[in-house]
């Protein structure tokens, strides 16, 4: 069994998550060190999103523990974990549909959680220039400046994915979990997204990335973890992973089945 090492940004120690008799995560241990983009890949249903959900407190693990920046975050409430500096996007898009793009990002900003309710009530939105500037800056980075006054529900899928990224960036996180940020996108949109993720990782947060598009994963990640049936079957650099027999078996096998 591995231990939580203090230098790791994020570590999972023997995490198991059971849904009834089904083990979505099976005694999984892994560590994410600071900096760059780390990939998390595996066939459908291998437990990738479940791991993200466990890390962000949506499902607390059945057993095992999770640590972030030296703190035990196992089973803590989602919002507490978010306040510690983990932000995420969702595979099945969870933008605030009936709010504008601008408000989606504005409401996510870090300081919101540090204010008391009364402060929040009397902090009138329009007077907060520095905050608005930061929102505008983030929208520019993800290329949504022109859409800032649109309702999120009116955006096409690609833009909703970028909005989710923008919302997560507004948190100024230390660790950014991206769950299939290029899912359902055209090749061009995917390229733009890949560049964006690259720039984001350069600028600050460590990125933990779930993605099925292998070209993008291989190009972006310095380190890749491979899951199958809730267990870690391999990890290493893109090269090492690509040449790993178990990975080829799990992946190509499943690809063959899907095809």
């Amino acid at each position: 069994m591995t231990r939580a090492e203090p230098q790791d940004m994020l570590s999972a120690v023997a995490v198991t998550k059971a849904f009834g008799a089904h083990l979505a995560l099976d005694n999984l241990s892994l560590a994410v060190t600071k900096g760059g983009v780390i990939g998390l890949i595996g066939p459908n249903g291998s437990g990738k999103t479940t791991l993200f959900n466990a890390i962000t407190g949506i499902h607390s693990p059945t057993s095992g523990s999770l640590h972030f920046a030296g703190r035990d975050i196992t089973g803590r409430a989602s919002e507490r974990i978010a306040q510690l500096g983990i932000a995420r996007t969702f595979q099945n898009l969870k933008v605030f549909r009936r709010l504008t793009v601008f408000d989606n990002v504005l409401g996510a900003q870090n300081s919101a959680s540090d204010m008391t309710m009364w402060q929040m009530l009397f902090s009138v939105r329009r007077n907060e220039t520095p905050r608005r500037d930061r929102v505008e800056h983030i929208l520019e980075r993800v290329g949504l400046t022109d859409r800032r006054h649109a309702l999120a529900q009116d955006l096409p899928l690609g833009e909703q994915r970028r909005l989710e990224l923008a919302r997560a960036l507004a948190r100024e996180p230390e660790l950014l979990l991206l769950d299939e940020p290029a899912g359902g996108m055209t090749p061009q949109e995917t390229d733009t997204m890949a560049e964006l993720i690259h720039d984001v990782a350069e600028a600050g947060p460590t990125v933990f990335l779930i993605e099925h598009k292998m070209g993008m994963v291989m190009r972006l990640c310095r380190h890749i973890v491979v899951l199958n049936f809730g267990r870690k079957i391999a990890e290493g650099t893109p090269k090492q992973v690509q040449s790993d027999a178990a990975v080829r078996e799990a992946y190509l096998g499943s690809v063959a089945r899907h095809a």
């Binding site: 407190g57 949506i58 409430a77 978010a82 306040q83 932000a87 969702f90 409401g107 996510a108 870090n110």
Partner: peptide, 8 residues
């Protein structure tokens, strides 16, 4: 869920 994910 999304609200909790941004610390609310």
């Amino acid at each position: 869920t999304a609200a909790a994910s941004v610390g609310i």
